[in-house]
Design a protein around this nucleic acid. Sequence first.
DNA 1: TTTTGAATTTAGACTCAATCTTAAAATAGA
DNA 2: TCTATTTTAAGATTGAGTCTAAATTCAAAA
Lengths: 141, 141
Amino acid sequence: MARLQAQTVETMVTSYGLKMTPQRRAIVEFLQASRSHPTADEVLTAVNQKFPMTSRATVYNTLNWLKGSGLVREVFEAGIVRYDPNVTDHHHFVCRRCGKVEDIDSEAIGALQFDSLPGNPKIENYQVTVRGICGDCQQQK
Amino acid sequence: MARLQAQTVETMVTSYGLKMTPQRRAIVEFLQASRSHPTADEVLTAVNQKFPMTSRATVYNTLNWLKGSGLVREVFEAGIVRYDPNVTDHHHFVCRRCGKVEDIDSEAIGALQFDSLPGNPKIENYQVTVRGICGDCQQQK
DNA sequence: TTTTGAATTTAGACTCAATCTTAAAATAGA
DNA sequence: TCTATTTTAAGATTGAGTCTAAATTCAAAA
C-alpha cells in the first residue's frame, strides 16, 4: 500500500520552488509513520516533541500544501477533520460506536459500474465509506 | 426518491415528547423543498425570510435533531458542511471545479461486493462519493 | 377556554479549529 | 559567504457551531 513518501515530498517541494525545512520534514515523517488518521492537532503535538516551537500555522500550511498536491487526503467524520497519508486508491470503514476510521484496500471492494450519471460528468475517481460496528466494539458489546 | 417529509417530522416530534413550533416547521419545509444541499447558514437565511427573528441556535438545534433522527444527512466537502434532506440510500457526485454536490440514485451504481473487511466489522451501510468535473463545468472549459 | 409546567426560543457570550499578519529567522543558490 | 526569497513563530483574528439564561410558547389537563 503506497503511503506518503518522504523522498517524493523532497522532490516535489523543490520542483515547486519551495524549500525543505526541518519542520516540514518532521511533519511528513510523522504522517509517513502514522498508521492511523491523525488530526491537525495530533500532528502539531507530535511534531512539537521534536521541534518544541513549531507553530500551528506551519502545520496547517504544510498539511494544506500536501493536500493540494494530492499527497495526503482529508477525511471528515463526526465533525472531526483527519489527514490520511495513504495515497493509494482505497476506501474507509468508520465505526459508528468508537468513531475509528480504518483503511479498506480497493481490491476488497470490486470496481464500481457507472451506467450513466445525471449531467454526464467526467468521472475522475470515487471513494466508498462503509459504516458499521468494528470488531472491537462488537466484542465489548 | 423519498425525501424529508413534513408529516414524518410532525409525527416523530410528538412521539419523542418534543413540541412542534413554527420555526421547526419552517426549517423542515425549506429543507423539504430544497433540491440542493444547503449549509446551516443558508437554512438560517431562508427561514429568516418567514420568521425574521429565528436564531442560529434554533437552526442548529433542529438540524442536529433531524440528523440524529436520521431525517437528514450531513455532507462534508471542501471544508463545507451541508445538509441533505434526501433520506433514500443514495450517493454523491462532487464537482472538483465548482464544488457542486449532486445526488446519484443508488440504482445507478450496482450493489457492492464486500469479501471480508479487516477486523470483521458489522457492516450497516455504505456511501459512494464520486469526484470529477460536472457537465456544466466541462462546457465552460 | 384557561391554567400550568415543561420545552423552546432568542440574543449574545463563548469556544475552538483554522487562517492571517508581521517581524525575525532560515534556506538555496550564486 | 552573501543575498534575495521563502518560511517560521506568535499572537491576533475569523467564523462555524455551542452554550447560557431569561423570556416565551406550546400542548395537555382542568
